[in-house]
């Protein structure tokens, strides 16, 4: 019971996503942050107020963190199709102290 619970907590904290999701996350990080940088600079320059640049930049970065870091469901849409588990029929026999275990 406690082990299962701990396993669940660990899974949530690690937040694994599939390979396709990793590619998407990488691309989104680059695109979002670059856009935020350009937009923050232009907003501050046009308004002639450097505070806009600072706070728009920080807010955009915070949003990027929110969009990328948690394992959102859309990062897990392409799960890897593993081969089915094979029965060890006629395969390795494991012996421990002369006794057959499996």
């Amino acid at each position: 019971m406690a082990d299962a619970l701990l396993e669940k907590v660990r899974e949530i904290l690690e937040g694994h996503i599939d390979f396709e999701g990793q590619r998407t996350a990488e691309l989104m990080t680059t695109a979002f942050l670059a856009t935020v940088g350009v937009f923050a600079f232009l907003a501050g320059y046009i308004a002639q107020n450097i505070h806009y640049t600072l706070y728009l930049g920080l807010a955009g970065t915070a949003l990027t963190f929110l969009a990328i870091v948690p394992p959102w469901p859309f990062f897990n849409r392409n799960p890897v199709a593993w081969l089915p588990a094979q029965n060890g029929l006629g395969a390795i026999g494991i012996e421990v102290d002369g006794k057959k275990v499996s």
């Binding site: 690690e14 996350a25 990488e26 990080t29």
Partner: peptide, 13 residues
């Protein structure tokens, strides 16, 4: 980008 920590590090970097 497979886990939360790696994604956070990448975004911050």
């Amino acid at each position: 980008m497979h886990s939360v920590l790696v994604r956070a590090q990448n975004v911050f970097g």
